[in-house]
Design a binder for these strands. Structure first.
Lengths: 110, 110
DNA sequence: CGTTCATATGAACGATTGCTCATATGTTCA
DNA sequence: TGAACATATGAGCAATCGTTCATATGAACG
């Protein structure tokens, strides 16, 4: 399968393309959104902060599973943690989370 | 680890939460964005349609690899295909793609 | 201190993912 | 029809992912 010619187009597109590093970061970010448990957690935190065991109870899942996922979300700067005694409260870290989910929701409900 | 009480909060959050089906769809959608090759393809199609072999050449990847990923993108309604003779041209199917990527990009470059 | 509650984390295991390779389908043209 | 080109697709395999289980850390309180 020898390719036909598109030399002109390619050079132009190449200029518009962000760096590999940025693209990788972008992919890694969306990967975090690509799991139903993490989506559920983000929806749970949509209105207010919550502690780990409340989220676990809400979703009917293990504390451990939730904690692992919260770590993933935190590493991606999607949630922030605040400690109060024994309890750790998590909240959405900024409005990008809400925007991204909202855009996705629009797409699937069109 | 017996949990402490949060009966009030949980009921409220449960009402705001979309159905499992919607959440799964949402997760599946973002999963598609969660791969650098597919991100690259969407960026390539950002301005104009392209045929499969042009994308393959642009990204320095196999025609087969690109074709598989285009199928994934098409199944998620993120790209549309148009045939012209032997060639198949792909393009972004709507502006949600651009919006979602733009929001993600904002998040990582804050 | 030691106990209890809340959370975090490492190892392990099944499930999913993205690529490659081989091959099939579809289109044009001689 | 048959050859050449463009694309699609199925099987297989290494790598990654999400959970579980066991255990560790950390804070409050007697």
């Amino acid at each position: 399968m020898r390719e036909h010619d598109h030399s002109g187009l390619l050079e132009h597109v190449r200029e518009e393309m962000p760096s590999d590093e940025k693209l990788q970061e972008l992919g890694d970010l969306f990967k975090v959104f690509g799991d139903i448990t993490r989506i559920r957690i983000m929806y749970a935190l949509h209105e207010d902060e919550m502690c780990v065991c409340a989220i676990a109870e809400l979703l009917g899942m293990t504390q451990s599973a939730i904690s692992h996922q919260l770590k993933t979300l935190k590493d991606a700067d999607l949630v922030a943690a605040r400690r109060e005694g024994k309890t750790v409260y998590y909240s959405l870290s900024d409005d990008h989370v809400r925007s991204i989910i909202a855009q996705g929701y629009e797409h699937i409900t069109e």
